[in-house]
């Protein structure tokens, strides 16, 4: 007699947990839709603020592609003049850099993906994974249904790394707008503390997607933040070609 209530409670809890987990996954998938795509081309302006002072704004072209189960990403710097011609090529966990000043190309270790990209508060990993969505490497759990962020009611979703994934943070906490499933903020947690936060704003409809044209990554360990303003973004863009994601292409850059 005592077993049955216990069993019922256990099953209910599992069901609730599963239902909760499915909800979280669905919410995240919905939020990820604008970011997931193939052959994404973008032009962005990135400005790093250190101790309140702005560094020279970087203008970058981004190309991403998913092909044959591999992810490709090319970032090409257009401005400032000092960085014009610098490029980063990421193919899965491999990373190459082309130096504008010498034209030489270096392969970096995969651990370098965690390093700051171009002195910004984004890592190479943060930038290179953008075509696959932010949460691809993570599993989602709903922590709270009603949290207010930027005066909007949000879902608070905890994202923990899936087994076997590399280049991940200890945990991400995403705040997704309940009404329109927009990412509003993501907290990046490492060693028990939120080390940086990414906020999204200026959402616009582009190619049928609700895309944030402004993102700000604020570091909580340094007096620094990076503002990224997207000038242009194209999905399934004809500007993205397969041969861009090769060493020989890097060699051809002027």
């Amino acid at each position: 007699m005592k077993v049955l209530p216990l069993l019922l409670i256990t099953i209910s809890s599992l069901f609730a947990a599963t239902a909760g987990a499915q909800d979280a996954g669905q919410i995240v998938r919905q939020a990820e839709k604008p970011f997931i795509g193939n052959k994404i081309y973008s032009v962005s302006e990135m400005t790093v603020y250190r101790s309140g002072s702005a560094r020279p704004t970087q203008v970058v072209e981004g190309y991403t592609m998913d092909e044959g189960g591999r992810s490709y990403s090319l970032t090409l710097y257009l401005e400032p003049a000092r960085m014009k011609g610098t490029a980063y090529l990421i193919i899965d966990n491999d990373l190459w850099v082309r130096f504008a000043s010498t034209g030489r190309i270096r392969k970096l270790s995969s651990s370098a993906k965690k390093n700051s990209a171009g002195g910004t508060d984004f890592s190479y990993s943060d930038m290179g994974d953008s075509g696959q969505g932010i949460a691809k490497k993570y599993q989602a759990t709903l922590e709270n249904r009603d949290v207010i962020v930027a005066e909007r009611k949000c879902f608070q979703i905890a994202l923990t790394p899936r087994t076997g994934q590399e280049d991940t943070y200890e945990k991400l906490v995403a705040y997704i707008d309940q009404q329109n499933y927009r990412y509003l903020k993501i907290d990046y947690i490492q060693s028990g503390a939120v080390i940086k936060s990414l906020t999204f704003s200026d959402y616009r409809n582009t190619d049928g997607r609700d895309y944030p044209f402004q993102m700000i990554m604020e570091s909580h360990t340094q007096p620094s933040r990076t503002e990224v303003v997207t000038k242009r973004v194209e999905f399934d863009s004809t500007k993205v070609e397969e041969d861009m994601f090769t060493i020989s292409y890097l060699q051809r850059i002027q």
């Binding site: 000092r82 010498t102 002195g119």
Partner: peptide, 15 residues
Amino acid sequence: EDNLLEMSDLAFAGG
């Protein structure tokens, strides 16, 4: 000289 130039690229980008 090339190495120093590349280091300066990194130094510039990294502030």
